[in-house]
């Protein structure tokens, strides 16, 4: 099912949650709505679901106007942030809920319901938990049951609100990959909301960055990361060093011996891995010092400061591969030269 949002706006009192959102989501996409908390991404998801009504604008499913359609008739599956499993029902009954409460004409027989539910539980690898109650499950298990429950009604669109937000780091990692693989098998149009850029990059095939009720950029994870449209996207997705060429940074950069060859704006954003660091032999040219470094596994993060700044000045972060760092034989306190390999320019 393809989804088109046209000119969606929504206010809560004086607060403008969504400001003229336009978005097209093709059939079969796995899309992340990414943004800081309070940016309106959850509201947008709920409007797509029909759990919330937009003040203006239209929601189209496969070209069909769904704006005023009830949540029950939209053919969506919704996974709530805190799962919203029915506490008084077993796992089996939770998953069967949507099938059992279909109108009599459309309701499958109890035997088919049993078969379907069993298959779904097998799909989420939790068939052995059918008779448990939600209270007896771990967070990750609840999450998967909530997903199975949403899938039971064979939705044309699957919507997930911060699906991994309440989980432990290790479970989260595992479920992210699992969701991605599940999507590859089912091919159902899927939209999930997250504030975690790493999660969006890892799971989604397409990312929509939302801020203050507006879409900042839409694109594949690599586009978003490598070609950010604006200052916000560049800062929000991945780490970056920000240099203002016109403000006091200009003098600072000059004295530090950092040169931008070809300025294309007033603000330069430089990703840490786009700065290469070399040890200076004669130590007179540069005033940049390696203050500290941290081992992050495959890469090493370097904290660089200007010598005379005494910690009060700017800190520049650079990253280099583990083995390159070992070859460079850098130590804390070493004077270094920096080479900017690539920068994003904004005005």
């Amino acid at each position: 099912m393809s989804i088109v949002l046209s000119d969606i706006s929504k206010k809560f009192g004086d607060f403008c949650a969504l400001d003229h959102i336009n978005l097209e989501i093709p059939q079969g996409e796995l899309l992340a709505l990414l943004g800081p908390s309070g940016c309106g991404k959850t509201t947008l998801l709920r409007i797509i679901a029909g759990l919330e009504r937009a003040d203006t604008g239209k929601v189209l499913f496969n070209g069909q106007d769904m704006t005023d359609e009830d949540v029950r008739n939209r053919g969506i599956g919704f996974v709530f942030q805190h799962y919203a499993l029915f506490r008084h029902m077993t796992v089996f009954d939770n998953v069967a809920f949507g099938l059992r409460f279909k109108p009599a004409k459309l309701r499958p027989s109890e035997a088919i319901i049993r078969k379907n539910v069993k298959e779904l539980l097998a799909l989420v690898h939790l068939d052995w938990l059918a008779d448990r109650y939600p209270d007896q499950l771990s967070g990750g298990q609840r999450q998967r049951i909530a997903l199975a429950r949403a899938l039971a009604v064979e939705p044309a669109v699957l919507l997930l609100d911060e699906p991994f937000g309440a989980l432990d780091a290790s479970v989260r990692k595992e479920l992210r990959l699992w969701l991605r693989h599940l999507h590859q098998n089912l091919h159902v149009t899927t939209i999930f909301v997250t504030h975690d850029q790493e999660e969006a990059m890892e799971v989604a095939s397409e990312i929509v960055v939302v801020n203050k009720g507006k879409v900042e950029q839409k694109g594949t994870p690599s586009k978003i990361y490598d070609e950010p449209h604006n200052d916000f996207v560049s800062r929000f997705v991945g780490q970056t060093n920000v240099f203002h060429l016109e403000k006091d940074d200009a003098h600072w950069l000059k004295s530090a011996g950092i040169v931008f060859d070809n300025p294309q704006g007033v603000t330069a954003h430089v990703r840490p891995h786009n700065i290469s660091v070399e040890k200076q032999i004669n130590g007179t040219e540069s005033a940049i010092v390696l203050k500290d470094w941290q081992h992050l596994g495959a890469i090493i993060r370097l904290e660089l400061v200007k010598d005379s700044a005494n910690g009060a000045g700017k800190t520049i972060y650079a990253e280099m591969p583990n083995d390159a760092f070992r070859h460079s034989a850098l130590k804390r306190g070493d004077k270094v030269s920096l080479f900017i390999k690539h920068a994003h320019w904004f005005n």
Binding site: L51, V71, R72, F78, F97, F101, A152
Partner: peptide
């Protein structure tokens, strides 16, 4: 009201939502 919203999103009618989800809770 998450559980009630979940029931609605799964297609339950208003009364079914009330008797099967709200009331038991």
């Amino acid at each position: 009201n998450e559980e009630e919203e979940a029931a609605l999103s799964l297609g339950a009618s208003s009364w079914k939502m009330f008797f099967k989800v709200t009331l038991p809770n």
